[in-house]
Amino acid sequence: MYDLIIIGAGPAGITAAVYAARKKMQFLVLTQDIGGQAAWSADVENYTGYQLITGADLARRFEEHMRQYAIAVHEQEPVESVVAEGYRIVVRTARAAYETRTVIIASGKRSRELGVPGEKEFRNRGLTYCATCDGPLFAKKDVAVIGGGNSALDAALQLVRFCSRVYVINDAPRLGGDEIAQDKLLEAKNAQVFNNARVTGIEGDKFVKAVTMRQEGARRRLDVQGVFVEIGLLPNSGFAKEVGKNESGEIIVDCSNTTSVPGVFAAGDVTTVPEKQIIIAAGEGAKACLTAFRYLNQHRF
């Protein structure tokens, strides 16, 4: 029986793990990967103590900090269910079932998919969800960025530096996101924005050759070799069937990271916490761990 199982190893999960190690709790970290979305951020300029650090470097430092302690981290072991049976909580993965007194869900968010024909077929065959990773492979090619918020603008601004043409396909009447980023994109000579446009499909043979869309009733087809999907994020909360969630699937937490299920706490981007920031996720992870620690002491199992 563990004191605590932490689900996820992004900024929230890793910080919770550091706090749990310092409290000498008996605990385990179950996660798909390490670093979470933070690792995919290009430049981070708002994490106190670092004027500028890449997301990959920050994630590496988080991991190094966690590895200072002898923490059991099971990578590539995503959680399939969390079921509370009285004061015993059972966390199941494809490999095993673990019993614990408390759980911190810090499983973050994943990229939302378009849900159009061709998306699955051409994934990694020209269609990608990570401009930071795969962008450079599309140098001197024509590409489309799907979306109109900050992540789409960020992707487009990376791509205009080395791609021939960058089309931004946005289903809203105008771009969202930061004004500074919008201005930069509109100034880029090789970028073209389509507003009120909805992607209808991805076409190609072995690799992507075109994206089709519908703009104000008219069908259009753009010849592109790359498609970057940046239409927001979905919380990884499907495995936690019993906890209360909002309409977006985010786990509802109070200011002490308590959920609707006793012993189950949650932290970071998977929750209803009002801002999704690396530094906020880290702070929430710390807070969730301290709440779990207090809960264990209060219940004297």
């Binding site: 390490i34 670093g35 690792a39 995919w40 290009a42 890449t54 997301g55 990959a56 994630a59 590496r60 990570c130 930071t132 990773c133 795969d134 962008g135 450079p136 492979l137």
Partner: peptide
């Protein structure tokens, strides 16, 4: 690999 991709950095590490 590409220099900017976190999984590339982790794989090499």
């Amino acid at each position: 690999s590409t220099p900017s991709c976190p999984y590339c950095i982790r794989a090499k590490q």
